[in-house]
Design a protein around this nucleic acid. Sequence first.
DNA 1: TATATTTGCAACCGAATAGTTTCATAATTA
DNA 2: TAATTATGAAACTATTCGGTTGCAAATATA
Lengths: 106, 106
Amino acid sequence: MRRDIFQAIADPTRRAIIALIALQAMTPNAIAENFHTTRQSVSKHLRILSECELVKQEQQGREIYYSLEIDKMKEIDKWLNQFREIWETRFSQLDTLLSTIKTPKK
Amino acid sequence: MRRDIFQAIADPTRRAIIALIALQAMTPNAIAENFHTTRQSVSKHLRILSECELVKQEQQGREIYYSLEIDKMKEIDKWLNQFREIWETRFSQLDTLLSTIKTPKK
DNA sequence: TATATTTGCAACCGAATAGTTTCATAATTA
DNA sequence: TAATTATGAAACTATTCGGTTGCAAATATA
């Protein structure tokens, strides 16, 4: 059973859940109200998100509030870094090219 | 058939392929040599990556060179932006807290 | 032209995935 | 205490996924 952050964000419902609880902690019931799916299905998504430590939970009476472990999201950013270097280089090359073109011939 | 960039990068082999061809265009055969899998399996991965426009191909005789569409990678970065705002806020809050602690009491 | 090389695609298989239904547990409320 | 509410987990299903094997097409080479 593969369980990493990239597999976790592959599902569109999970991405929506992540975006939702990024702003404020929510209970599974409250989260489910935002989607066309059952509470149980949301519960399963939350379990997957918990397993890769993307969310944390806080029990309050019989309710459980789920919120995003924002630090974990940085791992995606970190993976992107290797490509960021490339696209910034390409951009600056394009930039150089454009400014060369714009330079009026004397 | 779901086919978006997030589903594309969910697979570790595909992430490795992406990293590989980010540096230089490569043929399917050459790519496959880097993994413990068959050429056909790599071919399937390349098809998935092509379908969501993450790679482009250039035919050269009977060989096909695959390379990364680096711009497409920015979509992940764009999705991360909504969270970046949050984690930067948290960081600056922590920063403020730390500097408050460090401030010598008069 | 005959052979070898590079490649994509279809068929198949076992495992994983997302979702539903049902049930058990724990906390709250009447 | 009895009923209600909030939740997780188990069992089941249809679909998708990643991989392999086998084959066909196109290009290059002998």
